[in-house]
Nucleic acid binder design. Structure first.
Lengths: 345, 345
DNA sequence: CCAATCACCTAAATCGATTTAGGAAATTTT
DNA sequence: AAAATTTCCTAAATCGATTTAGGTGATTGG
């Protein structure tokens, strides 16, 4: 069934030369080794005649380079991560790297297992959106010599190169926008576990903003395993008790979806009854009715900076050595219809 | 910087035994080779003491198995493909395979380049949603001994195992739903290039359905590089000329988005002015206003069947040899608000 | 005619694992 | 005590490439 692939040796044998010669020629090092032009031609011709495909596994083993990097996120089918993955893929491809993508489902043990797996596969570096609460495991990985860049989520950790959005500021901007639009009682919809830095930072930003104008913070924490049902129950309860917020800041795209479902199900109009702004912009928000306001993350830029840092680590260049270890990139407020408060009250 | 990894040899040396011994023990073949229990313990202890990580590259080279498969689609950031990727990832992981994901941007030359790359990397199989018009290239790949399964899009080709949705039937069902809802003049929004089987099949289904009830087919072909602008211009023109369709069947998720944008921009109410149904369901459709009706593809099932067939090819089992080479899986109509015609006219 | 130079190529080690055939020492059998 | 087994382990080939130090034969120089 699976016939043996053509190897360097096969070419060498069928030409009666050494495989060193063949390797040199095929790697374009013929000139610097003074290999006769005519020999080059013969090798090249034979290689294409036999349809030679270099075995990258062997090459990688010998060179100690796999030309592969890993991207580990919680769920590649989440649109935020799939956009990020695509951006990383393009950068990697241009740099001659393949990309292995893994999803952790927010499970720390799965994350650890996948990281070990990638390490065993000799990936040259890893870009990771970690679900871990501390960075012991990751520091160990890094000390093992695996270039590592954290993306999206930061850990409380001085050692690891990290690239994130400015989530705190995003939380602030979004909240201020609600306040500026006339909302008096904005509810922040967060998600557990609480150690996920993106969410906690956004909550901080929210809290700062409301506190500053004398509004008491109001944060609901949604367990990530049961987002839709929990949010629906929450909205239902608040409505029944006549304690609805006048606006909601949904702090990531999964709670935004849940909130939209719940509001629709309970017949609550956006923005007439409840204003809504989302952390994370989604293509579909633009043409929804109402169009959803959002705090947009610079996905392409995140990928770019993270990938750049990873390459610096791989190439051992000290370019980023003197920069701050953690970069926070600016986010962008997109005002649409879902935060347009109708009447002043 | 990058210290050398601990190898089998290091363990062997530091224990004064052969590396064959170490390999056998670590692979659990100690018993069948009559290796002393005490020796096993020493090896295991030393391996964990030195924090040994097996080099999968070396292992793969020796075994002739990379435990990696490739998934090649047009764009991993498209939600359809990212859901598919996630499903494949889970299956692959359970089977002990890593997944390399590549995007082709619908470019045939890029697809060919990526396939070659994957082949050089010795992936054990490839799941491919191809942008190619014919299958010469792919047949060659397969004949090279690379297990290959086409997914999502089929080619006009008798040789390649293929797993797709029943797109023709989906086109029919969606169109019939429009007709049954009282629409008289449904426009099918297709996309070029025309050789993409998903779209051409859906158009066929649409055409069958309208023809059957005596309605003339009306298909607009949108060039895939300029979907949003083209669709907007089209809707604008039709509106200006007072030739608007009473409903639209958007034949994939990119034109659906474009149609929604265009309709909103031109102030056309869905479904009051124009009904809309989408091929491909998207999570966001459920809670949009109006909620969008859709023909849903069985993504998980597609992944499952394709992966199963790939494994059969890899394992050389003839399980699927007698089945039809192409499977078409049933799709599902989801009726929501966007196809609710108000008044009979 | 011998040595130096040049042009061209090869041998062999190496990366890190797996696997098979077989060997040495200890034990049992007769 | 010699022969036959057992028990436990090793040598060496192998996967397919890369790379370095060196070798061979022809040409040139003196």
């Amino acid at each position: 069934m699976k016939q043996k692939n053509v190897s360097l040796n096969d070419i060498a044998k069928s030409l009666g030369v050494s495989r060193a010669l063949v390797s040199l020629v095929l790697n374009g090092k013929a000139a610097e080794h003074g290999i006769a032009e005519s020999t080059c031609q013969r090798v090249l011709a034979k290689a294409s005649e036999l349809n030679y495909k270099p075995n990258q596994l062997a090459r990688s083993l010998r060179l100690g380079r796999s030309f592969t990097i890993g991207l580990v996120v919680s769920d590649i089918s989440n649109i935020f991560y799939s956009k990020l993955a695509r951006a990383v893929e393009d950068l990697a491809e241009r740099a001659g790297f393949s990309l292995v993508i893994c999803s952790t489902d927010e499970q720390v043990d799965k994350e650890q297992k996948l990281l070990r797996l990638l390490q065993n596969r000799q990936v040259e570096g890893i870009i990771l959106s970690s679900s871990q609460a501390d960075c012991d495991d990751l520091t160990r990985l890094k000390n093992d010599g695996v270039p590592l860049v954290l993306i999206d989520r930061k850990l409380d950790c001085k050692q690891l190169s990290t690239v994130v959005s400015n989530n705190r500021l995003g939380g602030e901007i979004g909240t201020k926008h609600l306040i500026d639009s006339g909302y008096k009682r904005p509810l922040a919809l967060a998600i557990t576990p609480a150690h996920i830095s993106t969410i906690s930072e956004r909550v901080k930003g929210y809290t700062n903003a409301v506190t500053e104008v004398g509004i008491a913070p109001w944060v609901a924490e949604v367990p990530f395993e049961e987002v839709p049902s929990y949010v629906e129950a929450l909205i239902g309860r608040l409505k029944a008790e006549n304690r609805l917020p006048d606006s909601i800041f949904a702090l990531n795209n999964s709670v935004t979806s849940a909130a939209l479902v719940a509001l629709k199900k309970h017949g609550l109009d956006v923005p007439a009854s409840v204003g809504l702004i989302s952390f994370d912009d989604i293509p579909y928000f633009e043409f929804m009715n109402p169009a959803i306001s959002a705090v947009e993350q610079p996905i392409a830029k995140l990928a770019e900076v993270a990938f750049g840092r990873l390459m610096d680590q791989i190439n051992g260049s000290s370019a980023t050595a003197y920069e701050s270890l953690t970069v926070e990139l600016p986010v962008n407020l997109i005002v649409r219809e879902s935060t347009t408060k109708q009447q002043p009250n």
